[in-house]
Design a protein around this nucleic acid. Sequence first.
DNA 1: TCCAGAG
DNA 2: CGGCCTCTGGA
Length: 558
Amino acid sequence: MENKIISRKLKLLSQLMELHGENSFKTKAVANASFKLDKLPFRIIDKTELELSEQQGIGKSTAAKVWELLNTGCIRELEDLLSRTPDGILEMLTIKGLGPKKIVIIWQTLNIETIGELYYACNENRLIEAKGFGLKTQEEIKRAIEFNMASQGFFLYSQAEKIATHVGKELEELLPKDCLLHITGDFRRRVEILSRIDFITTATEKELLNGIEHLASLIKFEQKDGHIQTIHESGLPIYFFISNNTTFQRDLLISTGNEDHLNLLKQKLDGDIPDGQDEKEIYRKAHLDFIEPELREGLDEIEKASHHTLPNLINYTDIKGTLHNHSTWSDGVHTLEEMARHCKETLKLGYLGICDHSRTAVYAKGLKDEQVLQQWLEIEELNKKLTPFKIFKGIESDILSDGSLDYPEELLKGFDFVVASIHSNLKMDEERATTRLIKAIENPYTTILGHPTGRLLLSRKGYPINFKKVIDACAANKVVMEINANPLRLDLDWRWHRYALEKGVLLSINPDAHRTEGLKDMYYGTLIGRKGGLEAVQCLNCFSLEEIDHYFKTRKLL
DNA sequence: TCCAGAG
DNA sequence: CGGCCTCTGGA
């Protein structure tokens, strides 16, 4: 990913050089080299240094040639040019529809240097003045910019978590020992995408400011009424709310929110929210059971808390195994054995479901029919070696456009379980996408419906589906729904967990891991499952090895 | 991932 | 009209 962006940048820079009338041989050399870089494993350590690896079948001579091209003077000129190139120009590369060539044209003819100016030009109908741009392209670019703006300023929970942990730890050291510092706000409620992080503290404003000033990662700060606003170097705003020892628990609860939840809570209390020893006591004063922060969304949680029917939320330690993972058989990074040993030895899990891509997914080296049989042999061998740990024979079978799975029945029969998911033809309307999914759900060999909407948070909207119909179909056909635990997906969305659970649908927290480290993503899946109200007993991979083995076997007999 | 085809 | 750039969709 990063490689691609860098090589596109190099391409852009070489275009710019051409326009600036630099030595054309060198320009060509750089253009050539940067073109080849698309295919090379490389990494820029700083602006002047490239690291070329000899692995992955790239010959030494090719590597050396590229290295030389980029090292003999070209880099210096590039660097020079880079310093003269407005930041906005490079940023334009992030807009869909704009590559190096087009950006240079826009820059040269319209003198546009930032995305803002570009957007403005689109609105003023000026972009069509540039050669090669028509009304249609102008509209496309405008739409692309709008999409970028909409997702800009938002961060994935997983990204925010890294920042929050880091800042929290560092700041704790800088504040007086007896100070409380607690994460709060949307983050505490485990909202999947965030526009800022909130902390609350009992430190005084002076102590807090002093601490913040010593944190190099917080680039600017502003004092507001009752809180301090800062911006982390990543661009994520961090707010610090100042509380005190007497009202801390109440302030924590209020800053955690959300607004709907607080309003419902106030109704229960006939007025304002009181203070307490801890949040539990505050809820008790409202005659409510303690409500976990992730459930505080103003949905049915207050109701349930008053009837003592809140779910007993799942914990990460409830997870007994993992389903839906990839290996080197398809597009994974680690071998089946490495994945299995990691599960068994490092994560102490009882089983691993391996679900490499199926034959339609050529792009992901999907398994051909006979490869499936070979993989089964390897699984059987490994199972002997690793017992009592067990690898389940699974497959992530593509749901074709008409809703069918892409292996013949005789082969599907042989799997312990089948994850069915959509990877192609994502642009269906709601009706067609829904019937496509339902047909796959009705397939007797489908055990789990994989990432139901195909969304990628902050970058791709999923295909539109009728959630109720899809969930009902899963209930009717005893199909488990995946909570894809990849922090970019978290799909099924937590807002639909309750409905699915009420219908008796089991959920499964699946990491969709393509490498051993990816298995940890089940942590994010657990958090979002908690937010959705998931209990361990309703989660397929919280089943013990014996239970899940039995589940797969009896399910197939039905 | 790669290629043909469209805009 | 051909060539060019970039995106899309199918395999």
